[in-house]
Design a protein around this nucleic acid. Structure first.
Lengths: 357, 357
DNA sequence: CGTTAGCACTCTCGGCCTGAGAGTGCTAAC
DNA sequence: GTTAGCACTCTCAGGCCGAGAGTGCTAACG
């Protein structure tokens, strides 16, 4: 009450904040512009609607609310949501019941670790009733743990690469000459000896030690060829792109009334389908190392201006990092979304810790 | 001309067929009900619009055309498309230019065979301007080629299973006791000896020979545990479900004017998101062994009544089979879609042949 | 000085009407 | 069998209107 001297700028007083919160809460539920009268009724504010209108005007001057047209109620702006999120950031935690439900869903985790991140996306989608996003945990600076070569045809082999953290990568190699399984096994043994713990750089610098393309023994020639492929495969890990982005619950987003005209939907899907921007965004989040919220226009590509993203990295920096998050309409329950994403990323941390000891 | 005696049923005469084709062709382009006059103008029919109207009435009695309302033009029914597809099924081949373009796109095929089917979906999407679908080639009756065990932690190991056709499958195993890499290697060697070429059934019947859970030597106990997991993993292959369905170009479908109201879109996406029906459909197609067309209401789930599917299996029955196809509005160019899918599935056949010698 | 009641004003939205346009089916003539 | 002509039907866009919602302003109040 003391602070209400400066009207046009500066921090909002407690009452204005409360009203902003109420508007956001109401709008999240109704998806309709909220008027002064309904707000007073629903939230038992101890003032009249006229007073609320004055504060509306104040909040509008501050850029936190707008009205779609003169005689409509107020709608929060992106800045309004941002203010709301900032001013209540620390209080976002999930009710124990929900934590329990999520833990329960994770109880069904499969043995194949490749499926974990999908489960995370599905869980988040059902908990937030928005779209869940997740990428697999991707090791940074991949190192070789084991190499295996399996002949497919005379001159075709499948090279299986096990990385230090247990993930695997398969690729095909055309052999310089017909080679039988014994030779391939010998080559594999040799490569395992020479390339233990190697990174992409290491492999490349040791290529010559593997053999030359026109060496005397067939082993050397094959080893050289396989080595080249290994370097390529490892390189792909270093590149800072997302391999795979799994999403679930896109239908939830389609159901939101703001996406009734399919044009808006189209924009969102176009971003999801060509992953260029998302890759960039995700690596930003991975770099930041903490949960981040992008609201409406804060997203760089205009296609995402109607939605908000809540993204959190999981895993351990330097080992393996992935992303989980929510994509929903800007009119989403940020506390709930942030709470859910934070909790799920915590669970994923545990899983990664357990796996990558 | 001779046949035009029976009007209400039976085969259509040549002129009626030509007009049906013209209506379909025009409607595919314009997405608007086509009237008798425009048809005469655009297609240089050598009759007047009144005559065309008579034939329209005939086609409508046969259930091949409808009008959305009394004074609108005609629109092909699902049965109309079906008649069209049946009566011209053999003439669907792609112009050489397009074949060349597709071949070119396939030239960029990566070394990792896991990516091939994605490329197929992408290629089909861009060629047909509809959504491309593809599943990876999945071996039927999986057989073991090689087993590899990599320790992750004291009591946690990653089991890598290479199947006869070169695909790999990883899963985690919690070991009955702390085990070091040497022991794991010994177990792997033993399993490789014992389980070469084994199916899920084989593994299960030989479980006791691997060792009992409370055998004297640690190798036996670990081998038993790993064997159990292997059996589970192999079982998953036998189950007749789709592992993965990749789709590309959904945006193309969203752009079609018939999906301007997002309700129809929603229906389509709901089917794509819960894969139950598609799995069933795809295994039907794989069983049939040839290209198949499902038009609008012919699709069992009502969610797909607004779209058509053109699906073809690829690979070799008994070895590995996958699916490629198109999902588009019922108003799609069937000749082009069928031609494209047939051609791409042929290319995939070649790739599979090459790989699974 | 903040709060409030009252009131005129503005804007949207749905319903209704209307005229233009498109396309049809029928009939009678060729 | 084909066609010209014509009356008829239906949709669609545009304009109009009244109801309803919500506002901003002003003047009175404590």
């Amino acid at each position: 009450m003391v602070r209400r001297i400066r009207r046009t700028s500066g921090p909002l007083d407690a009452r204005a904040q409360a009203i902003l919160r109420a508007v956001i809460e109401e709008y999240v539920l109704s998806a309709q512009p909220v008027g002064s009268r309904t707000l007073v009724e629903h939230y038992r504010l101890r003032v009249s609607s006229a007073t609320v209108r004055n504060i509306f005007a104040e909040l509008e001057r501050a850029g936190l609310l707008t009205q779609p047209h003169t005689s409509a109620g107020r709608v929060p702006t992106d800045a309004g949501y941002r203010y709301f999120v900032e001013s209540t950031a620390d209080t976002f935690s999930l009710p124990p019941v929900e934590e329990l439900m999520i833990r329960h869903q994770f109880g069904q985790v499969e043995y194949a670790s490749e499926h974990w991140f999908r489960l995370a996306a599905t869980t988040i989608a059902s908990a937030t009733r928005a779209a869940g996003l997740a990428t697999p945990a991707k090791p940074q600076a991949a190192r070789i743990r084991r190499i295996d070569i399996v002949g497919i045809q005379d001159r075709l082999a499948s090279v299986i690469l096990v990385l230090r953290e247990g993930s695997i990568k398969q690729s095909l190699v055309t052999l310089p000459e017909p080679t039988d399984q014994d030779v391939l096994a010998a080559v594999a043994a040799r490569l395992n000896l020479l390339l233990e713990n190697a990174t992409a750089d290491d492999v490349e610098s040791r290529l010559d030690r593997l053999g030359s393309p026109d060496a005397a023994q067939p082993e050397a020639r094959v080893a050289r060829r396989v080595g080249e492929r290994l370097a390529m495969t490892l390189r792909e890990f270093d590149v800072d792109k997302i391999e795979e982005l799994f999403s679930d619950g896109l239908l939830n987003v389609m159901d939101a009334p703001e996406f009734a005209q399919s044009e808006k939907l189209r924009r969102v899907f176009s971003v999801l389908e060509n992953r260029a921007y998302l890759g960039e965004l995700l690596s930003t989040v991975a770099g930041a190392g903490r949960i981040q919220v992008f609201i409406g226009h804060e997203n760089r590509p205009p296609e995402l201006r109607d939605v908000s993203l809540v993204l959190a990295p999981y895993g351990r920096a330097g080992r393996a990092v992935g992303i989980v998050g929510v994509l929903g309409p800007t009119r989403m329950s940020y506390p709930h979304a942030i709470g859910t994403v934070r909790f799920v990323s915590g669970l994923m941390d545990e899983l990664v810790d357990h796996l990558y000891s």
